[in-house]
């Protein structure tokens, strides 16, 4: 089981590296954001697997948090890309 988890962690880590490559390469910001979003997802997996590996449930809080933040990040980035500003003061105007 441990070996399996090890392998799994390494696979996830490698896919993170691949995503980081996309993040660095671009070519445009949206690609980077997509990559970052996916990295967030991969991190969730990594955290889950890691908690299994070291047998502790304390990191599980992080999973949901990561999901939340990754979502908020994506929304914020997309709004930024669309409008150049993430907060509009009054949409009804």
């Amino acid at each position: 089981m441990t070996y399996f988890l090890w392998a799994a962690i390494i696979i996830v880590a490698l896919s993170i590296v691949a995503l980081v490559f996309r993040l660095v390469k671009g070519p445009n910001p949206s690609d980077r954001v997509v990559a970052l979003d996916t990295i967030g997802v991969a991190l969730i997996c990594l955290v889950g697997l890691f908690s299994m590996l070291i047998d502790t449930s304390f990191f599980l809080e992080i999973i949901l948090l990561l999901a939340v933040l990754s979502f908020i990040g994506t929304i914020a980035f997309s709004k930024f890309i669309e409008k150049g500003d993430i907060i509009t003061r009054d949409d009804s105007r």
Binding site: S30, F71, T74, S78, I81, E82
Partner: peptide, 30 residues
């Protein structure tokens, strides 16, 4: 029994596609 994980699953289920949708649409508009 850890409910947060289940909550997390649910959360991801809701937000993942929505996020991608918003992202793509914004990019298109941009």
């Amino acid at each position: 029994f850890n409910p947060t994980i289940l909550l997390g699953v649910l959360f991801l289920f809701i937000t993942g596609p929505v996020g991608a949708h918003i992202m793509s649409r914004s990019s298109y508009i941009a």
